[in-house]
Amino acid sequence: MTDGLPLTDLAFNILVALTDEELHGYALIKRLREQEGRELLRTGTVYAALARLGDQGWVVDSEGPADDEDPRRRYYRITAAGLAAARAEAARLADVLLEARRKRLLAEPARG
């Protein structure tokens, strides 16, 4: 389980994106390109990350929703192990953020 941690930034973001839904490659890239600094993310990069995640057993292929217009499309789904890995990474990042806030690198979130 500790193999493969800490996750690369891209891998973590892919897992986060897949947390609540299955996505196919094009949609995933579009989603990721919305993030800051990732506007020009390329196919090769994303699919390489997907391949590694697949090797780890954190992402698997999926049939996709039944109402998909293109039956040939390949969907990607996160696994339970993948969720656990994403959670662990999120927790780790939260710890780092806590420390950053303590050192006044980042403002406290607004209460309420």
Partner: peptide
């Protein structure tokens, strides 16, 4: 074998 076709399709679409 596993990701090639999908990657190709996505790339062409982009």
């Amino acid at each position: 074998r596993t990701h090639g076709r999908a990657a190709l399709a996505t790339a062409l679409r982009l």
